[in-house]
């Protein structure tokens, strides 16, 4: 059994999380990856959702950021102001895990608007917690499915800061956290590298020239197919003196746990509907 691209995205992302991470989890793809990590190699990872739940261990994936499952299985649930003030702004979060409607090669994210802000072509939901997660978590992982309308050279609106425009750094905006370091997609693993191949954790990292760089292609993905889905000139690791690897296949355990989690989630949602339909 081999993984679908969406499953591969969750598996590849989950592998980047460690047992001692304190992870601020976005809904959707980030939530699947974080819980997969918790159910495989990182059983003690602390998952935080912006609704206030700390160290939650949901048995099924929540549909929304504030499902009861999250507080029922949390170590503690705090108020929303406390979550943003003490835990996020206070510097307690090691990884912020975000999705993106639109992003650029420097990890700047738009979830606000397509077109002009005051005369929008499409009004998107907006930033929610993301603007401060992006600057206050010590490091940012982004996960999204690749598509030309999403992976663009110039985003329409900077909802959340990555590394700013080329030539800028986060310090330009008085931000001292590492920002986006990893991008995990359905096709590849990308790392934020400068033109010398240095990552944010390396000495001498020069954010002014940094861009998400393909460091690992998922099994069966060709460079041509990947480039087709990206609106900016793609940087492969060789161009900065590193190697492009092949992402190891999803293991039987990873896939079994992920599929089991998805099946439980689907069954729980269906069960709620069936009970309701029977009553009507």
């Amino acid at each position: 059994m081999s993984a679908t691209p969406t499953e591969m995205m969750a598996v590849a992302a989950s592998r980047l999380l460690a047992n001692d991470d304190v992870c601020f989890v976005g809904i959707g793809a980030p939530s699947a990856a974080c819980n997969l990590a918790r159910l495989t190699h990182a059983p003690d990872i602390t998952l935080i959702y912006e609704s206030g739940t700390i160290a939650t261990r949901p048995d099924v994936l929540p549909l929304s950021i504030g499902d009861g499952e999250l507080s029922d299985t949390a170590l503690t649930t705090v108020s929303v102001p406390e979550m943003f003030r003490y835990w996020l702004q206070g510097g307690r979060v090691s990884i912020g895990f975000l999705g993106a409607a639109q992003l650029d090669a420097r990890g700047n994210i738009n979830t606000t608007v397509i077109g002009d802000y005051h005369k929008p072509k499409v009004r998107l939901p907006g930033g929610g917690g993301a603007p401060e997660i992006a600057t206050q978590a010590r490091e940012i992982f982004i996960t999204a499915r690749q598509a030309r309308r999403a992976f663009v050279e110039q985003i329409d609106f900077v909802t959340s800061l990555g590394h700013g425009a080329p030539g800028e750094t986060r310090a330009t905006y008085n931000v001292d956290t590492a920002g986006p370091t990893r991008l995990i997609t359905d096709l590849a693993l990308w790392t934020m590298l400068d033109t010398e191949g240095r990552a944010a954790a390396d000495a001498g990292f020069d954010a002014r020239s940094a861009a998400f760089t393909v460091v690992s292609l998922h099994p069966g993905v060709t460079r041509d197919a990947l480039v087709e889905t990206v609106g900016w000139p793609v940087r492969f690791a060789e161009e900065v003196g590193r190697k492009v690897e092949e992402t190891p296949e999803a293991s039987a355990e990873e896939l079994a746990v992920l599929r089991d989690l998805q099946a439980r989630t689907k069954a729980a949602h269906l069960r709620a509907n069936r009970v309701k339909d029977a009553a009507e």
Binding site: P81, M83, P131, T135, F157, V158, L161, Y173, N174, V175
Partner: peptide, 23 residues
């Protein structure tokens, strides 16, 4: 969240470390 908290505290405005680099 800060603005509600400031309202509850009877303050005219909320102060926080936010919106850096955000449009």
């Amino acid at each position: 969240a800060n603005a509600y908290e400031a309202g509850a505290a009877g303050l005219p405005c909320a102060i926080f470390r936010g919106y850096r680099g955000a449009e």
